[in-house]
Design a binder for these strands. Structure first.
Lengths: 180, 180
DNA sequence: CGGAAGTCGTTCGGGACCGAACGATAGTGT
DNA sequence: ACACTATCGTTCGGTCCCGAACGACTTCCG
């Protein structure tokens, strides 16, 4: 009843999944088990890995850029120069990681650091012309592949997927802060 | 009409997103741009990172296990001993990575390698009793947190999320193989 | 049988990644 | 003015992760 994708592999797929569910519930029998949650979480992670690897292989590797390096560069391209901590948050990585990524990006001439005018601790990161040019060159292919990996989703499905994930992100966000 | 989660943060969120869409389309103006695909892909990745970090912090780190190490151990717990390559595929990592993870797991006494009876190249991996016990001890908390991060999703939403992601995975799978 | 070709797991190089510890700088109160 | 505290970005230790190269082993075929 939840099946909208027709044909070919789906029946096999379903059978395998039901078998997996039986295996897991059997392995942990006697305990309450939220299988839908497990499935949602594990699929998020599997899909992310698969998409990331696909993108790195098909789009990014010719330019010798990792996913994170590209994301950082993309943020700089669209929103321009900004402080380090904001850039890290925007790119979804920690400050420690950003330092490494930025070192790579700077070495290859895609971005540069500059001192904050009044605050000696802070660092302003800017894209170079070469960095902007590179993003502009990669982005069409990147977006094309984004469309490819979501090709079997209807436009409605894509928006729905984004919405559901946003809900998860918001949940994580807010109770990460609440704990304090 | 696509909004099921009520109140609080949603309006802010939407405004920010629409602004981001304007920024991005403006940055790449004159080019066709599938923003729904970008949003779907980037949210998959963000959600995966957030969930993984949450799980490693809240559930796994007390046991000094990484996400991958736990996934491998989980697979061994539920499906029992198996060959290396199958285990790698099941856990969603490459062979090279599995070697590292397995070395860690073996050093800590959670799993062990054994020679294949007839084929000298292959390796059979088994969970130890300690490994099984550890999974059984962690799993309730792990599943509880899986439920937590998807708490703002209705049961239908969770299944829908899993389904949409499965579609993406299948797309990636099949045209990864086709290329050959 | 014996070399060629294919298939295993491992090793290696390089980057990413986190959290904690660290210096440097800035603000705060006295 | 001067400690105290908070907040920056960086460094460090450890792991993960991939793809490519490698060596050991097996299978295929003459």
């Amino acid at each position: 009843m939840s099946r909208t994708v027709p044909g070919a592999f789906s029946s096999d797929d379903d059978a395998q999944m039901r078998q997996a569910e039986r295996d897991v519930t059997h392995a942990f029998e006697g305990q309450a088990f939220d299988f839908a949650a497990l499935l949602a979480v594990s699929n998020v992670f599997r899909a992310a890995t698969a998409v990331r690897n696909h993108m790195e292989r098909e789009v990014l590797s010719p330019h010798q850029l990792s996913w994170s390096a590209f994301v950082v560069l993309f943020v700089l391209r669209v929103w321009g120069k900004q402080e380090s901590h904001q850039l890290a948050r925007e790119a979804g990585i920690t400050g420690g990681t950003l330092t490494g990524v930025l070192t790579t990006l700077e070495r290859r001439g895609f971005a540069k650091r500059a001192a904050h005018p009044t605050d000696g601790r802070r660092v302003i990161v800017s894209p170079t012309a070469k960095g902007r040019r590179t993003v502009d060159q990669i982005m069409p292919a990147f977006n094309h592949h984004e469309a490819l990996v979501t090709a079997d989703l209807s436009p409605t499905d894509r928006r729905e997927l984004a919405r559901l994930l946003r809900t998860v992100l918001r949940t994580l966000d807010t109770d990460g802060q609440d704990v304090d």
